[in-house]
Design a protein around this nucleic acid. Sequence first.
DNA 1: GTGAACTAGTTGTATAGTACAACATGGATG
DNA 2: CATCCATGTTGTACTATACAACTAGTTCAC
Lengths: 144, 144
Amino acid sequence: MTHRDDSVEIIQQEMTAFARRARATAARMHPELSLVSYTLLAHLDDQRGCRATDLAAHYFLDKSTVSRQIAALEKLGFVERRVDPDDHRVQVLHPTEEGAQVLANVTASRRQAFHERLADWSEEDLDRFASYLARYNAAQERLD
Amino acid sequence: MTHRDDSVEIIQQEMTAFARRARATAARMHPELSLVSYTLLAHLDDQRGCRATDLAAHYFLDKSTVSRQIAALEKLGFVERRVDPDDHRVQVLHPTEEGAQVLANVTASRRQAFHERLADWSEEDLDRFASYLARYNAAQERLD
DNA sequence: GTGAACTAGTTGTATAGTACAACATGGATG
DNA sequence: CATCCATGTTGTACTATACAACTAGTTCAC
């Protein structure tokens, strides 16, 4: 067992532990917007609207899953659909005013929670941790 | 927006992205053992047997959830129960031979996948990434 | 030693998130 | 036009999960 193996083992364990807990933590913090709803809504906000198909591709979700998630967000009044005039199959999705507001609140509170969790980290450590995570995820995306 | 804020933002985004994808990736890689079953079985193996209550506490799961997961693992023949002679309420759970074997296979294949993903990382980067993850999760556990 | 309070685990019920297959409908291309 | 493709919805099924109600065993106070 090399040092390298040890590190990989720890990374594996910690990533797994984190993944297991993330959903439950998110749900406890924000009952009004699940982790999935949150990321979908955030993507809509970020992209200034997009199609259900784009969301499915981006998040590796089935189109039926996205369809139901969007239906739920619409029912909550957080998302609205605008049929594309050039292609009547397509619905371009946008956050509503209220959706954008809720998103902003959840984002702010998530951001604060992360800041608190990372409060005693040096700027250098934060920077490196952020780079490592980005690098790890980018590599994984290419494999997916 | 300070550099510090930027790093926290990236950490948040990347951790969220990772969490969203982890379950599906695990399920695709190992249809025979879900991420949850895997971690429970691994914990049993690691601890050389423990109680359902211990699993629930360790993974922040409801005891009913653990009860059903264990029932499923038992049905698959991967876990056996031994009633504690000193306290007949207690069932000490152990991996069976077959359970240990499947666990070993899945562990090996997960380990290999992680090694591949991290193949082009320097030993120093791996070491630091592992420390950061451990530090992050330890801090979060204290807040949970 | 008996009853109250506690602990371990199971089962009933409900919900979220997910996939896959079948479908409807609109567009593109031979 | 006829066929094929793209977009999205709906039916169905399954997994993971929580909470509440329950059973059964243990401990402790009196």
